[in-house]
Computed example of a mutant assay.
Amino acid sequence: MFETLAALFFAHVLADYVLQTNTMVETKDRALTLALHTLAVFVTAVIATGSIDWRIATLAGIHLLVDIAKTVWIRKRDDDGINPYLLDQAAHLLTIIAIAAIAPTLWANGIWAREFGNGGLINATSWAPKVMLLIAGAIYTTRAGGFAVGKLMGPFAEGAPKESLPAGGMMIGLLERGLIYLMFIAGQPAGIGFLIAAKSILRFDAASNNAKAEYVIIGTLASFSWAIAISILILTINNGLNGTALLEIIPPKD
């Protein structure tokens, strides 16, 4: 199951955050855009799992329905903030988990596992799902987290620091989420404390302005929370691939 889950998650990240352009996001209410994006969801899942299966088509179909529901939500409520974004991603992830549970052998029966697995020369079964999972986790932690934090901070834009580098805050967010992800993957989550301390010192000047300080604090906590939550999710799936306790964050010492 976990091999299939890793492959489907990798496909989802590619379809939503690599192959989907800003223009496609802005024109999601058009039938052609939805069709192209749904096709990308299907094709990436087929390539990642190495399988052409009706359950992958079902996954793509549900993805389409979720995207339509999100578009209707945004249009009717005039709300393109954090709530529809989180609900959209939660629905996609739950669908991926459900498909992986219903069809756990999608990866095992796929071309990659059949041709290169089972102790073969390359033995893709042993490493490919882990590589896909780690790459997808890095993209989802940094890029997807950037969209989440940006949508959350939209209503607080008046408190944003005015004297800053162009896209400086976005780059800081990408770097801090990336560092948190690396610390978790390396089994050193305690290092996050040093990251918090360093940012607090560097942002000390914000304390002189209440609005700016609150903006920075909210954005930082949101960014850290996203990175920690996704890192734990990735470690849980990775533990499943390794056959260890799912919620084991720090590997035990020998």
Score class of each variant (00 low, 15 high):
Glu3Ile: 06
Thr4Glu: 05
Leu5Ala: 05
Leu5Trp: 12
Ala6Cys: 01
Val13Ala: 11
Leu14Cys: 12
Asn22Ala: 14
Thr23Ala: 14
Thr27Asp: 13
Arg30Trp: 01
Ala31Cys: 12
Leu34Phe: 03
Leu39Cys: 10
Ala45Asp: 07
Ala48Phe: 00
Ala48Val: 01
Gly61Leu: 04
His63Met: 01
Val66Pro: 02
Asp67Glu: 13
Ile68Lys: 08
Ile68Tyr: 03
Ala69Val: 07
Trp73Pro: 10
Arg75Gln: 15
Arg77Asp: 13
Asn83Ser: 15
Tyr85Cys: 10
Asp88Phe: 11
Gln89Asp: 09
Gln89Ala: 10
Gln89Leu: 02
Ala91Met: 11
Thr95Ser: 12
Ile96Leu: 06
Ala101Thr: 12
Thr105Pro: 02
Asn109Asp: 15
Phe116Lys: 06
Asn123Val: 02
Trp127Phe: 04
Ala128Ser: 11
Val131Ser: 09
Val131Asn: 07
Ala136Asp: 02
Glu158Ser: 15
Ser164Val: 15
Pro166Leu: 01
Pro166Phe: 01
Ala167Ser: 14
Gly169Ser: 02
Met171Cys: 10
Gly173Glu: 03
Ile180Trp: 00
Met183Arg: 06
Gly187Thr: 07
Gln188Asp: 10
Ile192Arg: 09
Ile192Ser: 09
Ile192Asn: 08
Ile196Met: 14
Ala198Cys: 03
Ala198Glu: 09
Phe204Gln: 06
Ala206Gln: 12
Ala213Lys: 13
Ile217Pro: 07
Phe224Trp: 10
Ile230Tyr: 00
Ile232Phe: 08
Ile237Met: 03
Ile237Asp: 01
Asn239Thr: 08
Asn239Cys: 06
Asn242Tyr: 07
Thr244Phe: 04
Pro252Cys: 06
Lys253Ala: 15
